[in-house]
Design a binder for these strands. Sequence first.
DNA 1: AAAGTATTCAACATAATTATTGAATTGTAT
DNA 2: ATACAATTCAATAATTATGTTGAATACTTT
Lengths: 218, 218
Amino acid sequence: MSSPSPKFELFARFAEVAKALGNAHRLVILELLAQRERSVDDLASAARLSVANASQHLRLMRKVGFLVSRRNGTQILYRVSDPAVLDLVKALHRVGERNVAEVREIVGGYFRERDALEPVSREQLSRRMRDGLVTVLDVRPEDEFDAGHLPQAINAPLRELEKQLRDLPKDRDVVAYCRGPYCVFAFEAVALLRQHGFSARRLEDGFPEWKAADLPVA
Amino acid sequence: MSSPSPKFELFARFAEVAKALGNAHRLVILELLAQRERSVDDLASAARLSVANASQHLRLMRKVGFLVSRRNGTQILYRVSDPAVLDLVKALHRVGERNVAEVREIVGGYFRERDALEPVSREQLSRRMRDGLVTVLDVRPEDEFDAGHLPQAINAPLRELEKQLRDLPKDRDVVAYCRGPYCVFAFEAVALLRQHGFSARRLEDGFPEWKAADLPVA
DNA sequence: AAAGTATTCAACATAATTATTGAATTGTAT
DNA sequence: ATACAATTCAATAATTATGTTGAATACTTT
């Protein structure tokens, strides 16, 4: 029973951090928190978890340093502690997408016309916004839009997009974005827009990545 | 019993990938494989695991795409499939080191004089090597050195370093490196060298990071 | 100070992970 | 072909993670 070496001890800590990423519900919560600060029961209902269960997941992620919390009035608000956490999630996505055959199937199936939809890169969008050539559509729920969005973006939550279509200029390209690379809202928005004769594309990923790249935010 | 959404399915896959990182032994194996290709029982003994157990860990990491294997004669050799995997591990280290209080304690305790030892960055070392001002010491085991090392580096495994000391020029700075940022060999080598009057520092991380940065390798 | 609410805790049942043993494969080499 | 070695598989036991339920806490607000 030799005591484990300090280095093994260190790696055991890193393993604990990785374990905190190793649950789909927690990844969902992290994506939600990447948009904005949220309360426990807000998260619980958004992620379809019991409050107690959500609380447990949050506690665990706070323990490994992913999240910090503060009290505001009667509720406790959680947020992501550090952009490095989002970088870690992004690195996970990259490896997952690259290496796991099943992920390629899911991505290629449900997010089927991924390439056909020709995502616009942040740099491209940024340039075209400067030139005023493009309508930018934020298709996330209103609360997430309010917490921060791209400059000039119009909030059009998917359910209300159809109503708002008549207000959009038909002669300009539309770029839609939502929570991140695996958020389906933008895909569906682009499909709907194209059905109605718009020239529409989606941003390659979402608001958190835009913000993380230090691009301007409103 | 609504079936889980495709997006949740996708996140469940990512969670599986993260779980594969969530075990200290697997992180040790990954660090070993970052140095060079190795056989199962080679890894088992290096990581102090039973062969069957090591085989299980390897199988799991191959399943999530971290590793690939090939047969060579009688044994099966594993290696890391993609540099993105090492990026993921690095992102994990960064978050772990940044956010987990206990990690800071371990790092600050065992790797205590971390800052006092003033690590040299890859860029600094690269420059000083070009100017020929520095002796570069690879303190990893010989087999790892043979599989790839920094140009001009001298292999001096820690156990033999003391014997080799007399052959080192005393008027030049020495920079030692080993497997990565948490590998203790370089720390101990620097300590030993300083005891013997050398001006010694360690490289900020190790060989895999050097190689990943596309710097020249021998 | 009391009442009310959001959150956390504790205890449990179920499920998943880990390490061990020994047997079964799968290839190489004689 | 047969023997051999390296690796993988299968079955087990022990540990750890997950999600419920209902009760306890810790605040705010009145």
